[in-house]
Design a protein around this nucleic acid. Structure first.
Lengths: 232, 232
DNA sequence: CGGTGCGTTGACATTTCTCAACTGTTGTGG
DNA sequence: CCACAACAGTTGAGAAATGTCAACGCACCG
């Protein structure tokens, strides 16, 4: 009755690792795949949380609207990421809006009702959820640390250094997961400043860049910029 | 055998609200009051988490050391606050240092071993812990939102407006919970900038201030500064 | 093929930081 | 109890970083 492929997908999540098959079956019974196009609303601020989500394909952004109508992005989520667990577990309204940002975005929705019931009955599930919330806490704390650094250059360098990267001989190759405009917002700087920083580093021979692909030529210098405050 | 007053204190925490007496007894058996003077180390980054804490009296700061030896404060915790739950629940090392910042600081230490055992057995405790982690998540998210706002004036106004305040007739009176120097660090600005902002607002008749006490004369203007970006 | 929006660049305005000096407060040892 | 050290807070002047506004190229999409 339940899609076995769905269960296999759910098993990949840290939330559900190592849970017995019958429990997985019960959870999966209230999960479903959902597809979105770019711009589609997944949930809105203030709604009661019907589910939390895992990104299977595509990407999602979570944001709030400030009083002057400006969009304040809180999180960008790519494949493998989960979100809105805290809303479901705390049984409060979703605290922000979520929309798909890529075409062909596919999520798994884990229904709140059944899940909460199982959560209350099954300590192992509780433990797994707690560790996923802890991961969120660690991630947010790092983000705060990053934002607290004064200089834009240091923030950008710090961000780049934490990005998943591929080492090719002498240089480190990495791919920006966000459009530059959105990366700028994430780092709390303007797109112009971001552009100029990359330009300066390119001129100084620290990086090479083409589109969203970056090659780090001088990693030590980048580290120095991230740690201290030296712009070039 | 177990201090009944300790149990009463523990009951005040959202983590333990509504738990049956025998369970409280079991938890309290591994809790103790601990006293610190200003500057005393509560735990250090990298240590295995022996306990998490509740601030009964005094204040605590949680910080990391950046590579250049600079102290990066992550949280300031006053009376009633709890911290390090995530470290205990995730069973990872403490991710930061914690020290007392006031003389006569008194904490309740909730021992990790017994607590984790009970956590695994008692779904109600698990649910309570999850909601406390969710509160942390909400708080950190707000902090990120705050730090993402471009202007220092907006950040400060935003901060002041969220502070617990007492309304006295026409004006709102509030007390800064942090030294100005530390408040500045919290907002990611320099103490000088903070001083000048308050000065400007005082001159403009937005606030009155003496030491750590602030009287907001024109709340609407402060709201406008926080929302938009207008410095005066 | 034309539009729409991202990314870049330039010139300029503004904010914020840095450095330095000075003041006031607090806590401590003589 | 006082003098003094140590440190938080304030203020000023100048430098540096960052934001704003505007123009333009370029890619992508219909």
């Amino acid at each position: 009755m339940t899609d076995p492929e769905l269960i296999a997908d759910l098993r990949l999540l840290p939330h559900f690792r190592g849970l017995p098959p019958d429990l997985m079956e019960a959870i999966a019974a209230d999960c479903k795949r959902v597809r979105f196009s770019a711009g589609d609303v997944i949930f809105s601020e203030g709604e009661p949380p019907r589910a939390f989500f895992c990104v299977r394909r595509g990407a999602v952004k979570v944001y709030r609207l400030t009083q002057d109508g400006h969009e304040q992005v809180l999180h960008h989520l790519g494949e493998g990421h989960t979100f809105a667990e805290a809303a479901v577990l705390s049984m409060r309204a979703y605290p922000a809006h979520a929309v798909a940002v890529k075409a062909e975005t596919e999520l798994i929705a884990i229904g709140a009702g059944r899940f909460l019931q199982l959560f209350r009955e099954e300590p192992r599930l509780a433990a797994a959820m707690v560790s996923s919330l802890s991961m969120w806490l660690i991630g947010l704390t790092e983000r705060i640390e990053e934002l607290s650094v004064a200089s834009a250059a240091a923030r950008l360098a710090h961000y780049l250094l934490r990005l998943p990267s591929k080492v090719e001989g002498e240089l480190v190759v990495l791919e920006l997961p966000l459009a530059k405009k959105e990366l700028a917002a994430h780092l709390a700087i303007t797109p112009e400043t971001l552009s100029r920083l990359l330009r300066r580093w390119r001129d100084a021979g620290v990086v090479r860049s083409r589109g969203r692909t970056l090659e780090v030529l001088d990693e030590r210098l980048l580290v120095a910029i991230a740690d201290r405050d030296e712009p070039a």
